[in-house]
Design a protein around this nucleic acid. Structure first.
Lengths: 136, 136
DNA sequence: GACCTTATTGCAAGTGATTCGCAGCCACTC
DNA sequence: GAGTGGCTGCGAATCACTTGCAATAAGGTC
């Protein structure tokens, strides 16, 4: 995933705030809140404004480079670099950990919805709450 | 689903605002926003305050009588009376319609996660965005 | 490198959904 | 019907996020 390229083909500019937000998004933890991202970006460069972080995030979302998911937590939404949409988020209610689960269930679901119900799925947001193996 | 009973067994009171919110939630459309509900409640009884609507909704959510789902729309979250959790929300990006899809995929997923991955699922929030049969 | 165009930013004020504190009210019990 | 404490209405507060605007700086052109 090359940020510079993705931007340049659309006459968008690769700026410092965008680069920093992208760095934070692609390195380290998944599922950061906008505030987390802003804090980390600000730590790396104190001159970057909160608005720019929000603007970068929603730009990345438009370009399908990043993805916003509401995991049901009270504090705002969580962000992660884009990944295939056949991913299930497993949210542990005990330790708060969010796992990604890859499987073919989503594909089954997609074809089932398409062929049996005429619904053409674009993207999936599957969140399962429960207790993870560690916490049971 | 008897509201009075659910409340009384927990030493909670059946008040007019709660009754009205419940009426709106169980009659007519699904997936109302808090604002929709507040508006309808207010139409039926102008003396009911917005805060009370929010308080009733979150109480019902605690009691598992109602359910909040974030369907990805910019205006706040959507509410519906509780239903079995094996429901998939199909959100049409064209007409905005939200359909419920009942199927056994959720059950398959639950047992798959449990037996193969040690994840004990409590509840599911499955939202699929796409185009419905009408809009294709 | 200097210059130019205009996308992008920082700032500060604004928005809109939701929450909270508190004094008064009323649902339910005895 | 009196008491009590759970609830409500109200208004102010919060919180995540957005926006308007003048200043700034990418990235192309010469």
């Amino acid at each position: 995933m090359d940020l510079a390229e993705a931007l340049q083909t659309r006459d968008l500019r690769l700026t410092r705030p965008r680069q920093l937000v992208w760095d934070v998004l692609t390195s380290g933890d998944h599922h950061l809140t906008a505030a987390d991202i802003a804090a980390e970006v600000h730590r790396r460069d104190g001159s970057v404004n909160l608005s720019s972080v929000y603007r970068a995030l929603s730009l990345f979302a438009d370009l399908r480079l990043a993805r916003e998911s509401r995991l049901g937590s009270p504090e705002g939404s969580h962000w992660e670099a884009a990944h295939a949409d056949d991913v299930i988020h497993l949210v542990c209610e005990s330790c708060g950990e969010v796992q990604h689960h890859h499987g073919d269930q989503i594909d089954h679901l997609r074809s089932h919805l398409g062929s049996d119900h005429g619904f053409e799925a674009t993207w999936f947001d599957v969140v399962v709450h429960g207790r993870c193996g560690e916490c049971r």
